[in-house]
Nucleic acid binder design. Structure first.
Length: 832
RNA sequence: GCGAGAGUGGCGGAAUGGUAGACGCGUCGGACUUAGGAUCCGGUGCCUGCGGGCGUAGGGGUUCGAGUCCCCUCUCUCGCACCA
C-alpha cells in the first residue's frame, strides 16, 4: 500500500464530496431533526488566516458530528462584506470597493472549499449584495415605524482617522475599535437605534443563556448594560422655575448632600452659569474641559476640577441650600447630567469636596473613621445619623423609607438607570448600507417606500476621500431625488449604516437566502432557529452579540421570529498566536496558513488546532506540532491499509454477535463512548487523545497477530476498530478519514463515503468493565493496588486490603482506627 | 481602583473530592538502515540507601482522603474605567 500523501487525498476526495452534495440542508421532505450550527461569518479582508482555520475547524467538528448523528444540519457560510477596509483599499489602489471586496471573497471561498468545511454553499450570500441590503433597509424602516430608529443631535464619538462617528461599543479604552486612533467628541445629528428600550429584556433573557454561553460574556454584557436602581430626586434651584432631577443609588444619604454638581458640558450648566457674574469663569472652564481628551478624562485618579456657578439648589429633605458647581466628573449623558454630592459616602464627591473645601457630613455610621479626616469615603452598610426622623435605620430600610416618602410628597420616585446608551448606527463612509430615508424641506424625514428598495449605492460619481461628511453627498445625481410624500425636490440621507446592522440579522437570512417576500421566510426561521451552537471570537462579546440579541427581540415583537434569543449556545474560540504574542506584520511573527497547509495538509493543521488544548484557549503555534499531527494521521491510514478491504464491513453497534479479540472490541467501544462524550463537551483535544490510543491499540493487535501467524487475515475485531476509527475521525480530519475508509474497502465515489457512515454506537456490554484496579491506601497514601471484580463487595474488599503485605508493612503494628471502603476503586486504611 | 478568571513536568495539556501528570511535543536509549531531521520499539516529574521520600504558585483550613472545596498572600490574563 502506498504511503499517505495528504495532498493527493485532498485532490481525490474533494470532487467526490462535491458530486455527492453531502452538506445540503433543508431538502424538501427531509424529515430528519434539524440543527443549526453557525460560525461567525468572515470579513473579506484578504485570504483566510490561522485564526479562521481554528474557528472554522471547531465549528466544522460540531456540524459534522450532528450530521453523522442523522441530523439535517444547517451549516451555512457568507460574507460580512460591507466595511471600511474596502474603502481604504479603494482609495489607496484606485479600485472600486466592490471589486476589492468580491475578489477577496472569491479567494476566501476557494480556500474554505479546499479546507473541506462542511458548508452548504447553496445558501451563500454577502451583506453587500443588493438582494441582501434591500432587506437591511426594509428592517431599518420597520424599526423606524416602531419608533426604534430616530435622529438626534448629541456629542458623539468621532474617529479622526476613519473620519466617521462610532457607537459606544466601538470605542475600546478611548480608542477606535477598528484603527486604534484616539477618539474625540463632536456634536452631530445622527441616527440611533433605541436599544435602551430593550435593556431590561437584554438583561433578563440572559437567564436562558446561563450555562450555555461563557460566563464571562454574560458578565461583560451585564456590566455593559449596567443596570442600577435607586431614586430620582427633584431639587429646586433658586431662581429657576423648573426643579432639576438627579439620579442617585443612595437616597439614604440625602441628608449628607453638601453640594450639587452639573456636568460642565451639559446645556443645564450653560444655562445656570448665565447672568450672575460667573459666566466668564464657566466659559473658560468649559473650554478647558473641551480640550481635555477622553484618555485624560478617563484617568480616574485625575484631580477633580470644576467651577462654582453662584447658584444654590434646595435639598428637598431638609431645605438646606447646596452650592451648585459645574464639573467634568459628572457625565452629561448618564442619568440627568446632574448629581447631589454626598462626600462622606462617595469617593468622587469626597475628592471634589476636599479640593474645594466643602463640608463633609457623615449620615451613615459604618463604624469606620471619619472620611473628612481619612479622605476615604465610607460606602458600606450602617446606621443612619444626622438624618432627622430616619436616624437609626439601616441602609436598606432607609432607602426604602426615604424613597417612599419622596414619592408620597411628589419630590421623587424609585428609578432605574442604565449605563447602556442608544446604538449610534449612522456612518460617514461609502461602503455600507444606505439609510432609506429622504429629507424633504416640506415633509421632513420620509421613509423610502418598500417597493423602491433597495436604495442602491451609486457606483460612479462618488468621491471616497474621507472629509468628515458622507461621501455619498458628493454623488450629486444620487442625492438629488424627489420626496415620496409630496413629490417635491428632496435629498437622500447620505449616511450609511454601521456594518453591525448588517450582521445583526444574517443568521436569519441563511434560513431562506433566496426569499423575496421579506428578509426571511418565517416558516424557515421557525424550523431552524435558534442557532444550536454559535462559534466565534470573544471580541464580539458585546458588539455583535448584544446587537443581534436586540434585533431578535425586536423581530419577535414584530411577530417575525418565534424566539427571543438567537444563539442557544456560544463558544468563543481562542486566538492563534506566535511566540507568546499576537501575530502581526510589525512583529514579523506571522504564520502563513497557506504555507502550513501546503506543508502538512489540511487535516494535520485541523488536528493540530483541535489537539492543542480546549478550544477557548489561545494556541501558540510555537508550542504545537503539525508534524506530530501529520505523523499520527499517516499512522491511521497505514493501519487501515494493513487491515485492507477483506472481511466485509463489521459495523459497530449493528446487531448480532461480533467475532474477534474481546480486548480489542472493548477498547473500540470504550473509545466510541469516550469520544462521543468529549466531542459533545467540545473537548476535542481529549477526543483526539482517545483516538490516538485506539490507533496504538489496533496497531499492537495487528502486529501481534502477524507475529503469531503471518498468513492470518485481520482479526474481525481489528477491522471493526479500524472502521470505527475512520468514522470517529470523520468529524475531525475529514480527508484522512475518507482515505482510511476507502482503504478499508469502501467506495466513496459510489456513495459509500465515511461522511455518510453515521456515528458508531457503543455496545454497553463492551463499555462496562469486569475488573478494576483498586487502590489501597494507608493514611491516605497509596501503598498497594489490587485487581478486583467490578462488583466486589465492601466486606470482601476490606478483607483483601487488610491482607495486603504492603498494608501490613506500612501499618507497622499500629492498630487500625477505621477502614474507608469505596468499592470497587479505593480502600483507605486509617491507623490509630 | 472595581469586577471576573487562571496558576499542574522542559513545553501544550489530562484528571465525577478517591492511582496526579492521559495524549502529544521535546529529550534519552534501542531496532532497521550506506545514511537519516524517515519509520518502528522502549524510558522520561524530582530525590533515593530501591524500603521509600517529596511533588499541582506560597501559607493555613475542612476531610479517612484536596490539583479539585473554604480563607489569606503572591503572580498573570481579561473586562470596565469618574456611570452618581
Amino acid at each position: 500500500m502506498s504511503p499517505y500523501d495528504p495532498h493527493a487525498a485532498q485532490d481525490r476526495w474533494l470532487p467526490v464530496w462535491e458530486s455527492l452534495d453531502l452538506y445540503r440542508a433543508g431538502r424538501p421532505g427531509d424529515g430528519r431533526p434539524k440543527r443549526y450550527i453557525l460560525d461567525m461569518f468572515p470579513y473579506p479582508s484578504g485570504d483566510l488566516h490561522m485564526g479562521h482555520a481554528e474557528a472554522f475547524s471547531v465549528g466544522d467538528v460540531v456540524a459534522r458530528y450532528w450530521m453523522q448523528h442523522g441530523y439535517d444540519v444547517l451549516h451555512p457560510i457568507g460574507w460580512d462584506s460591507f466595511g471600511l477596509p474596502a474603502e481604504n483599499a479603494a482609495i489607496q489602489r484606485g479600485t472600486a470597493p466592490a471589486d476589492w471586496t468580491y475578489t477577496n471573497i472569491a479567494t476566501q471561498a476557494e480556500s474554505f472549499r479546499r479546507f473541506g468545511i462542511s458548508f452548504d454553499w447553496s445558501r451563500r450570500f454577502n451583506t453587500s449584495d443588493p438582494e441582501y441590503y434591500r432587506w437591511t433597509q426594509w428592517l431599518f424602516l420597520r424599526f423606524y415605524q416602531r419608533g426604534l430608529a430616530y435622529r438626534k443631535a448629541s456629542p458623539v464619538n468621532w474617529c479622526p482617522n476613519d473620519q466617521t462617528v462610532l457607537a459606544n461599543e466601538q470605542v475600546i479604552g478611548g480608542r477606535c475599535e477598528r484603527c486604534d486612533a484616539l477618539v474625540t467628541k463632536k456634536n452631530l445629528t445622527q441616527w440611533y437605534f433605541r436599544i435602551t428600550d430593550y435593556a431590561d429584556r437584554l438583561l433578563a433573557d440572559m437567564a436562558q443563556l446561563e450555562g450555555s454561553w461563557p460566563d464571562r460574556v454574560l458578565l461583560m454584557q451585564r456590566n455593559w448594560i449596567g443596570r442600577s436602581t435607586g431614586a430620582e430626586v427633584a431639587f429646586a434651584i433658586e431662581g429657576r422655575d423648573e426643579p432639576v432631577t438627579v439620579f442617585t443609588t443612595r437616597p439614604d444619604t440625602l441628608f449628607g448632600a453638601t453640594f450639587f454638581v452639573v456636568a460642565a458640558d451639559s446645556a443645564l450648566a450653560t444655562e445656570l452659569a448665565a447672568g450672575d457674574g460667573h459666566e466668564e469663569e464657566f466659559a473658560a472652564y468649559l473650554e478647558q474641559v473641551k480640550r481635555t481628551s477622553d484618555i485624560e478624562r478617563m484617568a480616574s485618579d485625575r484631580p477633580k476640577t470644576g467651577v462654582f456657578l453662584g447658584r444654590y439648589a434646595v435639598n428637598p429633605v431638609n431645605g438646606e441650600l447646596l452650592p451648585v458647581y459645574a464639573a467634568d466628573y459628572v457625565l452629561a449623558d448618564y442619568g440627568t447630567g446632574a448629581i447631589m454630592a454626598v462626600p462622606a459616602h462617595d469617593q468622587r464627591d469626597l475628592d471634589f469636596a476636599r479640593a474645594f473645601d466643602l463640608p463633609v457630613r457623615v449620615v451613615v455610621d459604618t463604624g469606620e473613621p471619619d472620611p473628612a479626616v481619612t479622605g476615604v469615603a465610607t460606602v458600606g452598610d450602617g446606621v443612619l445619623v444626622n438624618s432627622g426622623e430616619y436616624d437609626g435605620l439601616v441602609k436598606a430600610a432607609a432607602i426604602e423609607r426615604i424613597t417612599a416618602d419622596l414619592t408620597a410628597r411628589g419630590g421623587g420616585q424609585a428609578a432605574v438607570n442604565y449605563r447602556l446608551r442608544d446604538w449610534l448606527l449612522s456612518r460617514q463612509r461609502y461602503w455600507g448600507c444606505p439609510i432609506p430615508i429622504v429629507h424633504c424641506p416640506t415633509c421632513g424625514e420620509v421613509p423610502v417606500p418598500d417597493d423602491e428598495l433597495p436604495v442602491r449605492l451609486p457606483e460612479t460619481g462618488v468621491d471616497l476621500t474621507p472629509r468628515g461628511v458622507a461621501p455619498l453627498e458628493t454623488a450629486r445625481d444620487w442625492v438629488q431625488t424627489s420626496c415620496p410624500g409630496c413629490g417635491g425636490d428632496a435629498r437622500r440621507d447620505a449616511d450609511t449604516m454601521d456594518t453591525f446592522v448588517d450582521s445583526s440579522w444574517y443568521y436569519l437570512r441563511y434560513c431562506s437566502p433566496d426569499y423575496t417576500d421579506g428578509p426571511f421566510d418565517p416558516a424557515a426561521v421557525a424550523e431552524w432557529m435558534p442557532v444550536a451552537q454559535y462559534t466565534g471570537g470573544v471580541e464580539h462579546a458585546i458588539l455583535h452579540l448584544l446587537y443581534s440579541r436586540f434585533f431578535t427581540k425586536v423581530l419577535y415583537d414584530m411577530g417575525l421570529v418565534g424566539v427571543v434569543e438567537p444563539f442557544a449556545a456560544l463558544l468563543n474560540q481562542g486566538f492563534v498566536i506566535m511566540n507568546g504574542s499576537k501575530m502581526s506584520k510589525s512583529k514579523g511573527n506571522r504564520v502563513d496558513l497557506q504555507a502550513e497547509l501546503a506543508r502538512y495538509g489540511v487535516d494535520a493543521i485541523r488536528i493540530t488546532m483541535l489537539f492543542a488544548g480546549p478550544p477557548e484557549d489561545d494556541i501558540d503555534w510555537a508550542d504545537v506540532s503539525p508534524a506530530g499531527s501529520a505523523k499520527w494521521l499517516a499512522r491511521v491510514v497505514r493501519l487501515t491499509g494493513d487491515v485492507g478491504a477483506g472481511g466485509g464491513p463489521a459495523g459497530a453497534g449493528s446487531s448480532g454477535a461480533q467475532a474477534g479479540d474481546p480486548a480489542v472490541r472493548q477498547t473500540t467501544h470504550r473509545t466510541i463512548a469516550a469520544v462521543t462524550t468529549q466531542v459533545e463537551a467540545l473537548r476535542f483535544n481529549v477526543a483526539v487523545a482517545r483516538l490516538m490510543e485506539l490507533t496504538s491499540a489496533l496497531r499492537r493487535a495487528i502486529d501481534a497477530s502477524r507475529a503469531a501467524d503471518a498468513s492470518r487475515a485481520a482479526d474481525p475485531a481489528v477491522r471493526e476498530g479500524a472502521e470505527v476509527l475512520a468514522r470517529l475521525l470523520s468529524v475531525l480530519a475529514p480527508y484522512t478519514a475518507e482515505e482510511a475508509w476507502a482503504r478499508l474497502g469502501h467506495d466513496p465515489a459510489a456513495g459509500d463515503s465515511v461522511h455518510r457512515a453515521g456515528w458508531p454506537v457503543a455496545d454497553p456490554a463492551l463499555v462496562a468493565v469486569e475488573t478494576v484496579t483498586c487502590v489501597v491506601q494507608v493514611a491516605g497514601k497509596v501503598r498497594d493496588r489490587l485487581e478486583v471484580p467490578v462488583d466486589v463487595s465492601a466486606d470482601d474488599l476490606r478483607v483483601r486490603a487488610l491482607a495486603s503485605a504492603a498494608v501490613q508493612r506500612n501499618l507497622a503494628g499500629r492498630d487500625v482506627r477505621t477502614v474507608v471502603v469505596r468499592e470497587p476503586r479505593l480502600v483507605n486504611v486509617v491507623p490509630a
